[in-house]
Write a protein that binds this DNA or RNA. Structure first.
Length: 425
RNA sequence: GGAGGGGUGGCCGAGUGGCUUAAGGCGCUGGUUUGCUAAACCAGUGUACUGGGAAACCGGUACCGAGGGUUCGAAUCCCUCCCCCUCCGCCA
């Protein structure tokens, strides 16, 4: 959510920010709502002030045995007017809030212009795609060929976009997650968290998934929502809090399943496990001050890159352009891993700086030691470190052999109990 | 799921309709006193919105778990919900 005061003082800059995302100007509409809202508040507060004063006088008059009926009549009429104003305040206030909740974050000045992913800018590449002297297979064919990946029975049990992963492939995925967590906790200073997978709607509103992306989410009959990413659970660890500046930055990591309905993705990535309703991800989240957030953003990208480098998977870093940065975020770098099965780089991590957008929605603030008045909103950042299912895909396709077996990356050997080659049994 | 007990400021804790501008204490900040430290004493010490002001600041309103209600007036009475604690039941 954006600062209403900022919109009020900088309507032209606000509309220009929307224009970068190819969105229509909204300052006029919002400013009118805001002015009307504040007008009602001012009137209401002056009535309340008079009512409080009169009520106090009634108490004093009555305690001396006097007649307070004139004052009581006055308060009665004030109350009538207040009731109408309270109703209006609630309606206008809620409507203004609803509107503000659907306004996207202001993009960082460093974000390149452009209206869709074709305008994204390649920042750097690492590693070179391996050349094969035999026809390469994609991960779905490899997995099914090994007898360790089953979509057919998953369709019987759960429907489309689910899979069974078995034996050494299941273990390989677990090894990847372990390796990522170990690296981030012991070398990168992130604290491991095992967070809730079911959250309240308020949490999703805080991190920005609601109300806009309601169709992408699953909700239980009990009213809990399944997290589409542990970013939701992790970022909300500071919701409603006033933190000490000294405890920032807070760096958190979690390995969790993620659940997405993938509404609107019909026909996209239907083969394999690239896009499923349920997948696993190691997430990185940083809570920090505005002064350090740009550096923390670079840091998260680097932490994610380390994983790909140690797995010896070729990748590139892409700066998302204005039209491709998500609703909640001010700036995003994607990591795209080389997939021989598709002869293409595919997203495996998205590292974003949300500035204070989520913090405002969550009311997450900090204060410096000894600072006596006022608070500041924290900055929130998140990145995949990495999407575990897609990393499994990348390992399978990049480490495949001519006979359809898969070598285990060196760095995973300690996690694989001596298995260095996965082959059909 | 059942029974009982709770939720008050940064923390502890008083508060059964107006004497509360939430007592008192702790903590914190500043000051006085003072070889130094400590102690003592004095003062200050929440968040948000809103009006005025260039600002420093000065007013107002709301907030005692959340939301409704009763009342001229609610931390206090009523209703609904949430969370915590103890015990019981069930359960990985």
């Amino acid at each position: 959510m954006l600062d209403m005061k900022w919109i009020r003082d900088n309507p032209a800059a606000f509309d220009a920010a929307l224009a970068r995302r190819a969105a229509a100007p909204r300052s006029k509409e919002i400013l009118e709502l805001d002015a009307s809202h504040r007008g009602v508040i001012t009137e209401l507060q002056s009535l309340q002030s008079r009512r409080n004063e009169a009520s106090k006088q009634i108490g004093q008059v009555k305690s001396k045995g006097g007649d307070a009926s004139a004052l009581m009549t006055e308060v009665a009429t004030i109350k009538d007017r207040m009731a109408a104003l309270e109703a209006k305040e609630q309606i206008v206030g809620q409507y203004l809030l609803d509107v503000l909740m659907t306004v996207p974050n202001v993009l960082d000045a460093a974000v390149p212009e452009g209206k869709d992913e074709t305008a994204n800018v390649e920042v750097r590449t690492w590693g070179a795609p391996r050349s094969f002297n035999y026809p390469v297979k994609d991960h779905a064919d490899l997995g099914q060929g090994l007898g360790l990946l089953d979509f057919d029975q998953a369709a019987v049990v759960s429907g489309a976009r689910f899979s069974y992963l078995k034996g050494a492939l299941a273990r390989l995925e677990r090894a990847l997650a372990q390796f990522m967590l170990d690296t981030h906790t012991t070398e990168h200073g992130f604290t491991e968290v095992n967070p809730p997978l079911l959250v309240k709607a308020e949490a999703l509103q805080g991190s920005g998934q609601l109300p806009k992306f309601v169709d992408d989410l699953y909700v239980t009959t009990a009213g809990h929502w399944l997290i589409p990413t542990s970013e939701v659970s992790l970022v909300n660890m500071v919701a409603q809090k006033i933190l000490n500046k000294a405890e920032l930055p807070i760096r958190l990591t979690a390995f969790t399943p993620c659940f997405r309905s993938e509404a609107g993705a019909a026909g996209k990535d239907t083969k394999g496990i690239i896009r499923q309703h349920q997948f696993e991800k190691v997430e990185l989240v940083t809570i920090c001050t505005p002064e350090t957030s740009a550096a923390e953003h670079e840091r998260i990208v680097k932490c994610a890159e380390v994983i790909l480098q140690r797995l010896e998977l070729p990748y590139r870093v892409v700066a998302l352009c204005a039209g491709d940065v998500g609703f909640t975020m001010a700036r995003t770098f994607d990591l795209e891993v080389w997939l021989p099965g598709q002869s293409a780089y595919r997203e495996i991590s998205s590292c974003s700086n949300g500035h204070e957008f989520q913090a405002r929605r969550m009311n997450a603030r900090y204060r410096a030691e000894g600072e006596t008045k006022g608070t500041h909103f924290v900055h929130t950042l998140n990145g995949s470190g990495l999407a575990v299912g897609r990393t499994l895909v990348a390992v399978m396709e990049n480490y495949q052999e001519a006979d359809g077996s898969i070598r285990v990356p060196k760095v995973l050997l300690p996690y694989m109990g001596g298995v260095d080659l996965i082959r059909r049994v």
